[in-house]
Every structure is written in C-alpha cells, then in structure tokens.
C-alpha cells in the first residue's frame, strides 16, 4: 500500500481539527448507547486521576448531566495519594457531586492479591521485603528489537539500591495474575454501584489499550461502553484539555498506579513515550511506508519496520483479551 492518496505523514497528523464536532459526536453516541441501547439512566465511572478516566468523566458529565454521573475512587494500599487528590479535583471541576471512595485493600487482602504477588517476587529476588521495598515490572528491551518483549522485576531498596532481574515464566504469570485482582475488584465494585443506581459502567481504555491489549480481561476491560476506545492517547489529551480537565492531570505522566514502585505506562508496556507510540501506531494501521514514517520520526526504515512488527505481534498475542467466550 502507498500513501499517495493519504495525507503525508507528519507529527501532527493526529491533531483533531474540529474538536467541538468530535466531542459532540462522542457525547451524542454515549447518550444513545446508554439510554436507548442499554436502557440505563446515567453513568458510573471509576476515576483515578489519570487522563483516560478524566476524559471519560468529562464526557459523561456533558452527556448525562453531572447529577446523573457517579464518580468512584477505588484506591488500594499501593495507590498514590496524588491519584486521589487529582480525582477529587476532577469531579469538582465538572460539578459531579456524587463521589464515593471505595477502598478495595480489604477485598484484595481477602483474595491474597498482595501475598501471592510478593511471594512470586520473593522467589526471584530472594531478599525482597515487601514491608519496605518497592517493586514493579517493566520491559527493558529496545522496542525496535524483533524479539518479543520480556518482563523484568525491579526491586528498589529503602537505601535506593535497585535490583533488576529477568522474570521467569511462572513468576511473571503469578505476579500478573495476582495484580489483576485489582482491576477485577474495581470492576466488581463499579457494577455493584451501577446496578444499585440503574446506570451503565463507563469503561476508560483508549485505543492503544484496547487494540494492544493493555487492559485486564473482565477488569478494566469490563464495562458497558468505552467512549474513548477509538481515540489515540494524544487525542485523549487534546479532548481533555478542550473539555477543561484540570492542568494537574494534563501535566501528569501516565502511570499504571498498580505496583508499589512508581511505574510509567512506558516502562510497563509501551516501551516508548505515548506521543511517539501514537504516531507509529497510526502509521502502522494506516499503511504508511516505514521509510516515510522513519524520515518524520528520525528512525531508520528498519527500526520502523521492527516497531510495526512488534505492534502486529502485540495485536495477535493479545487477541485473547478481546475475545468473547467461545461457544
């Protein structure tokens, strides 16, 4: 495929020109989906202080009116305090007064989330002390490598010493499975409130998260509608700024807020800043030649080809997450 009939690839190719129209179309669709298709009377949304849930709350407040939106903060013992403060500021900014705090730490302790996760980390980093050490998992490989990404565990000691080790398969799987209790517990709590209030659960994943599989099946992937599921992260930022999301949220580096050590989404999954990721993804899915994209992005054609291959591989390997039960 060539790009002769398309706009030339550029760094601002994802910029939304008519942002009012785009926002109004999303808002109109949310109303139709919730009121007509789902026959629910408002929205329940989990807010974290991150950009995606903030955009969704802003859109929900516009779509259903602030009084028909319930914003729920779902912190647990590893959540940062910043997240809660920003979430409260966000709800206030959009006039959403029905805000709840549901601390899910007790539920997670009941599931053995922390104990199972820490036990797996301890098998790899034998002097890991969950009481004082911080931990996170991350990908350290070059995104242009043609080898699939492999996760490492990084443990940060109180004195600042860092231990990083490649995660063996069983330990990696146990850490992820245990940690996924967080997203699944949040989903359960959101549906409790949605059913209690006869509302729809608003899912917050953006286009990357949906298509590259950066979500937990039946966790944050469990929702009734996903209003920003078709938007690149750059566009989520643009819409959020347009709708008046507080500056503190717009300025924040996207994090997972899932592990005890601070962890950006870039460390955890994307392997490059979201602005770059967006542009490569756009080039990949719209058939822009690697050479054309490489010239704009300052990468070699071979690097872009490898990034495209990685994207294709992520799509394939995470297809399971997007599948409905097979029968």
């Amino acid at each position: 495929m060539t790009s002769t009939t398309k706009k030339p690839f550029s760094k601002d190719i994802l910029h939304i020109e008519d942002i009012d129209t785009v926002c109004n179309e999303i808002i109109a669709k949310m109303r139709t989906d919730v009121a007509k298709k789902l026959q629910r009377r408002g929205a329940v949304i989990g807010i974290s202080g991150g950009i995606d849930s903030s955009a969704c709350l802003a859109l929900s407040a516009k779509a259903f009116g602030p009084k028909n939106v319930t914003a729920i903060m779902l912190p647990e013992q590893d959540s940062s305090d910043d997240s809660r403060n920003l979430a409260e500021e966000l709800a206030a900014a959009f006039g959403v007064t029905q805000t709840l705090v549901e601390n899910i730490t007790g539920a997670l302790e009941g599931f053995g989330c922390y104990q199972r996760r820490d036990e797996a980390i301890g098998r790899v980093v034998t002097d890991f002390d969950p009481a004082v050490d911080k931990a996170k998992i991350e990908i350290k490989q070059d995104p242009a490598s043609t080898l699939p990404p492999i996760f490492s565990i990084t443990v940060i000691k109180p004195n600042g010493d860092v231990v990083s080790k490649l995660l063996p398969a069983m330990e990696y799987l146990q850490i992820v499975a245990a940690t996924n209790f967080k997203q699944r517990s949040r989903m359960s709590m959101l549906y409790y409130h949605a059913e209690r209030l006869h509302c729809a659960v608003i899912g917050t994943p953006n286009k990357h998260e949906v298509e590259q599989g950066f979500f937990v099946k039946y966790g944050d992937g469990g929702a009734d509608i996903m209003p920003i599921g078709h938007l690149y992260k750059t566009q989520v930022f643009q819409i959020s700024a347009h709708l008046g999301v507080p500056q503190g949220i717009l300025d924040r580096t996207p994090t997972t807020d899932t592990y005890t050590a601070e962890q950006t989404q870039e460390d955890f999954f994307y392997q490059m800043p979201h602005k770059e990721m967006d542009l490569f993804w756009y080039g990949f899915e719209n058939g822009y030649p690697a050479e054309e994209v490489g010239k704009v992005m300052g990468k070699s054609t071979e690097d872009v080809e490898n990034i495209y291959k990685n994207m294709e591989r992520k799509q394939k390997t995470t297809a399971y997450l997007r599948m409905k039960p097979i029968f």
């Binding site: 043609t146 080898l147 699939p148 990404p149 492999i150 490649l166 995660l167 063996p168 398969a169 069983m170 990696y172 799987l173 291959k309 591989r313 394939k316 390997t317």
Partner: peptide, 17 residues
C-alpha cells in the same frame, strides 16, 4: 520462530525455562 509468529513473548519465556 518469532518473526513467523510460531512463538510469542510467553513462548519465549517458556523456551528460556
């Protein structure tokens, strides 16, 4: 084996094991 999609990232992890 990776370029052809025979093994993915979990496949690589299990191969290492």
């Amino acid at each position: 084996i990776f370029e052809k999609g025979v093994l993915d990232s979990m496949g690589l992890l299990f191969l290492i094991e």
